[in-house]
Design a protein around this nucleic acid. Structure first.
Lengths: 379, 379
DNA sequence: AAGGGATATGCAACCGATTGCATTAATTAT
DNA sequence: ATAATTAATGCAATCGGTTGCATATCCCTT
């Protein structure tokens, strides 16, 4: 693996530097050398130069047509001489295909970029787009409502051939709105029940969560807490179901106090500890957190109470974020295959686009547990 | 919004229409019932419905023209009835602007997504693109060579109005190639010397590194090691210069053994410890690492040797990655404002695009040191 | 040598908007 | 009331490719 040259990580607040800029003295535009620049020429220029009809040039460049070797050569020579590049926009207008797939990113949610979800998503999308000759049109959005406004806009204005949408808030009917417009979309995540027919791919959150509960139960834990994120999101609901299933399968009773929501934030996890341990004599001996950030908060809460992890209480996080391996103790975490999910979604979408039909079908991908040192058998 | 269900002269979705092109008068003769789905209509359909000329409809939608309130209303009503959305591709072809800026992402380098550089970059780019009404066209690339092939393609085929490029490998002349094509580009990172006039924005790596060395020297450290990434990358060279400057400013002698390269990898950091501590009596009492991953490796190497951080040796990382805060001890790290850099680059690019000139000017942004617990005064 | 089927190109009508210029209608000035 | 403006539209030529159909060549057969 080759390390990146540019790629130095970090986060820094936009405003930090916004006020301190150091303009260096650049050259003014007058110094720009124009004669070294390329002119843009059209298919007709080339045609004239090669003494053929524009349509012939078009055929030479679009490949799939019978062109005599002689003309092909003549056209290519002319094209090279004029530095011709076919205009993709014009082509798109004509063939009604852009070779582009759209994605909407809720860029205003800060956590969106902090998490490893976004990079993985992009990686998966990009991987297959690139391989299949597509590009990504990425648009921002400033909220759940705006998400489908933007998505719709991209599609309605024909800027992309299809779109993958990631949001699955149950209170905003993005999917319904989109479907009504008869557009090519595939969803990352589960759709709300009324749109079960939309194409989607997701992690099997329910099963994965159930397995974790069973795993903890198998280690002797009987009081297991569930700390979810935003209770309105479908992921969190699925996981909760899995939790209940797992508890039931292990024959364990569930107490209301053990179910809590940390809204995916570190502090949420911290507070969850407080709420779940009012009665220390009946407090959980294991926690499952729906992301690692909350797990970190839980860890802190536990530590403050002098509770040892994993000695006294076990802890499982989700997403296997970069920090998980470096915590004390190293955090056991559920790795969700976001990259593979995104890749599958892109493939599904492009398949449909190229077949000239609506995307369909559903796909569930398995997560896997990365075992580290935050879990221990309950004696 | 009521879905049109009956009796519209229809042009349907692209693929539906693909098999029946070239209707005689521009309208399909038959009437089709498209259940629940929206029909896509053109400016001419709206014009016909509202009994005005297509150009009038165009003017209504592009805003900046004198249209009587009466006609505007009529057009809007017709447009709504036909669910008209202007086709962005057609518009782009006509006005020669796509409202899109391109980015090329070397998606094959795994580390690219692991790092927080990429999300920060996207966040910054997206933030300003969104605010200014642009979208991002993201293309993959599978290597340094391919990067400018892709970039060039996006620009040459007019799919974007400009592009931001991130690579700054000194051995691949991306910038030169791009400049020769007279394209709108702004670089994130320093350009190689021969292209000093290209527009760019970057962190002031040299100064930041110098400050860190001075800071360590100020704490009494006299033997300070520099662990860089890929020696071929410009970032690393700048930092090295900063290191030398800092050492000189603090009146400290530099020993060859204290300068090492870990290629941005954890293991590279680990090995650097080995190489820099052959002679323990003259070994560094402080390390500066060009990313946190290497700092983690250094930490491990030191620990294996029974050397306490920060008790015996101090350590500063770079990028303030998510894991930095959670290490033991929490890592003091240089936070580089990638998000702000990307935002500045996007602004610079869009400014130029909208002014109809080439981007120019340069900008250096300050990094800031996040002090945690891996540094201590040398007694 | 004439007929027949392939091949290669040309023709021109699209794709769906934009916009300079001309024309008509509405206002204002004289 | 008429001339002079100005505001509101229509006209038609773009933007730069694509592609169904027609035509012209070519190569074989018989």
């Amino acid at each position: 693996m080759i390390p990146m040259t540019v790629g130095l990580p970090t986060r820094c607040l936009p405003h930090t530097l916004a006020d301190r800029r150091f303009p260096l003295n650049g050259h003014s535009p007058e110094f720009v050398v124009v004669n070294r620049s390329f002119v843009v020429s059209t298919i007709r220029d080339v045609a004239a130069q090669a003494d053929v009809h524009p349509s012939t040039v078009s055929r030479v460049f679009s490949g799939n047509a019978q062109i005599s070797e002689a003309t092909r050569q003549r056209v290519m020579v002319a094209a090279r001489a004029l530095n011709f590049q076919p205009n993709a926009i014009a082509r798109s207008l004509s063939v009604r295909r852009t070779k582009t797939i759209g994605v909407i990113v809720p860029h205003v949610f800060d956590g969106y970029f902090a998490d490893s979800f976004f990079p993985q998503l992009m990686a998966g999308l990009l991987e297959v787009s690139y391989a299949r000759g597509y590009r990504l049109l990425v648009g921002g959005c400033n909220g759940y409502q705006d998400e489908h406004v933007q998505a719709l806009d991209i599609l309605a204005t024909r800027q992309a051939d299809g779109i993958v949408v990631t949001s699955s808030r149950l209170d905003v009917d993005t999917v319904g709105e989109l479907q009504r417009h008869n557009t090519s979309l595939v969803l990352i995540g589960h759709p709300p029940a009324q749109h079960a027919d939309v194409a989607w791919v997701d992690a099997d959150n329910r099963t994965a969560t159930r397995h974790i509960i069973e795993y903890l139960a198998g280690l002797g834990h009987r009081r297991i807490a569930y700390v979810g994120g935003d209770p309105d999101s479908s992921v969190v609901k699925e996981r909760l179901e899995g939790y209940h299933n797992g508890m039931a399968a292990a024959n364990l009773a569930v107490t209301e106090e053990w179910i809590d929501y940390g809204y995916f934030a570190e502090d949420g996890g911290y507070q969850a500890v407080e709420r779940t341990r009012r009665d220390e004599s009946n407090a959980p001996t294991a926690y499952y957190a729906a992301n690692d950030l909350m797990a970190i908060g839980i860890l802190r809460g536990l530590r403050e109470r002098g509770i040892d992890v994993p000695g006294q209480v076990s802890l499982v996080g989700t997403n296997d974020s970069p920090e998980a391996a470096h915590l004390t103790p190293p955090l056991t975490s559920l790795r969700v295959p976001y990259r593979a999910i995104a890749a599958a979604a892109a493939n599904r979408l492009i398949d449909a686009i190229e077949a000239g039909r609506q995307p369909d079908g559903q796909e569930l991908l398995e997560s896997c547990l990365i075992e580290r040192e935050s879990v221990e058998r309950k004696v």
